[in-house]
Amino acid sequence: MEEDSEASPLRLEFGGISSAIETKTKMEDIRTLFEKYGTVVDVELAMYNKTRNRGLAFVTMGSPEEALAALNNLESSEMEGRIIKMAYAKPKKTKIPPPSSQPKPVTFNLYVENLPYEARSKDLKDLFNSEDCSVVTAEVVFQGNRRRSAGYGFVGFKSKKEAEAALSAFHGKLLLGRRIRVARGKQFVKVPKEESSQLGDESTELNSTVEQVNTDVNDTK
Rank of each mutant, 00 (worst) to 15 (best):
F188K: 13
K122L: 08
A70M: 10
E78S: 13
R11T: 14
Y111N: 07
G172P: 10
T220G: 05
N72G: 03
Y48F: 11
V191K: 03
Y117S: 14
E194Q: 13
K158W: 02
P64D: 11
S76V: 09
S5A: 14
N109Q: 12
V112W: 06
S8R: 08
G156C: 05
D4T: 14
D29Y: 02
I17G: 09
S159W: 01
Q143Y: 01
I30F: 04
T204V: 05
V155Y: 07
I96W: 00
K50F: 04
F58A: 12
S8Y: 01
K161R: 13
L167K: 15
Y48K: 15
F154W: 13
A87F: 02
V213A: 08
E164N: 10
N214L: 15
F170C: 11
T60G: 04
V40P: 01
A163N: 06
L10V: 04
K125P: 03
S77C: 10
S130L: 06
D201Q: 09
S8D: 15
T215S: 14
M86Y: 05
T220Q: 15
S5V: 03
E35Q: 15
S196V: 14
K221C: 01
N129E: 15
E118N: 08
E78R: 12
A7D: 06
V182G: 09
N73M: 13
V135Q: 12
T32M: 14
S134L: 08
K125E: 13
K104G: 04
S196F: 00
L174G: 01
R146Y: 02
D216V: 02
V213G: 01
V191L: 05
K85D: 07
